[in-house]
Simulated assay, not measured.
Amino acid sequence: MSVAAARHVLPGFRLGMGYTILYLSLIVLLPLAAMVFKSTELTAAQFWAIASGERALASLRITFGASLLAAMINAVFGVLTAWVLVRYPFPGKRFVDALVDLPFALPTAVAGITLATLYAGNGWIGRYLEPLGVKVAFTPLGIVVALTFIGLPFVVRTLQPVIEDIEPELEEAAATLGATRWQTFARVLFPAMLPALLTGFTLALSRAIGEYGSVIFIAGNMPLISEITPLLIVSKLEQYDVAGATALAVVMLVISFVLLLAVNGLQWRLANSRRAGARA
């Protein structure tokens, strides 16, 4: 019985760890190492000149600024969408639930063309916004719209299982003790959802930073105004400036790593504080 109990469906730790390291090395570490190695063909002065150029800095500001803004928007409306889908029955619920996954299935180029058509000056939505002074297509605002569109499913799908596990009795108990709806959300529901919300935020942010297809059709791609860094990298590759493209890619890699490390650090602190609170 002891021998049977010691058996596992998956291989042991050493074999499993070996396969894990090999797989990650081939899929992640090796391509990233090749990219960094290629950028070393540049001198430090050349690398800095490319990374600190006016066009490069403008594209980095647009890329990371729009990505952060889109991820924050999805964090707010993702909570609302996930809550409605989990807690409320309504006609067409399955259809709405399927719509959340549409950005996963829709090719990014198709999404970009569709959004550009909708928000252009003569589009179904743009024709009503432009008279109000709100121009979406071919502006940085259009980039935020595209990144919000492709990032929403990450937040919603991450939150749904967590909300399903929150027992409605907790809300009833809070109401019985005299808590308002806002107090119940802030002190009972939100702390339980926060780790999953941070995970969804991180996934949406990561997806937005590297997005290309859906953005180029609605951004306008004007240097210093609405040009994203992935497009600038592609432009350098088309000019056979591989070293310059990898230099920009390395800059994006470093900034993305720092952002993800900060979010993961915040998640780790929250997890530790919850464990400490549970022990107390």
Rank of each mutant, 00 (worst) to 15 (best):
V28H: 01
P140C: 02
F104D: 03
I62W: 04
V36A: 14
R269Y: 10
P230D: 08
G133T: 08
P223D: 08
M193C: 15
A58R: 14
E169S: 14
E227W: 05
Y19T: 05
L15S: 07
A105G: 15
A280V: 11
A204L: 06
A58P: 02
I113T: 13
I216N: 02
S214N: 12
Y119A: 12
A243S: 12
R14V: 11
S273W: 06
I150K: 10
T43Y: 00
P168L: 07
M35H: 05
M222N: 10
A70K: 00
A58C: 10
L177S: 10
L129E: 07
L132W: 04
E167T: 15
L10G: 09
P11K: 04
G92V: 15
V110A: 12
I150P: 00
L177A: 12
E211T: 07
E41R: 15
S206E: 11
P195A: 14
V86Y: 08
R181G: 03
L80A: 15
T199M: 13
V144Q: 01
Y119V: 07
G244M: 07
W83A: 12
T20G: 05
M193Q: 13
V145E: 10
A271T: 07
M222Y: 06
M1R: 08
G12R: 02
L30K: 03
A4H: 09
L189N: 09
A45I: 14
W83H: 13
D101Q: 05
E130I: 15
F190S: 12
P230R: 00
V215D: 03
V28C: 06
I216L: 10
L248R: 09
V28W: 01
D101P: 13
P153F: 00
V258D: 01
G126H: 05
L57T: 12
L10S: 09
A45V: 15
L99D: 04
L189R: 11
A245F: 00
W182V: 09
E169G: 13
L85I: 06
F185D: 02
A56G: 06
P191E: 09
F13N: 04
E54A: 14
S2G: 07
R187N: 13
L203H: 05
N122C: 03
A243R: 13
L69W: 12
G200E: 00
A204R: 06
G142N: 02
R7E: 11
A33E: 04
T246W: 05
A280N: 05
F154S: 06
A6G: 14
F217K: 04
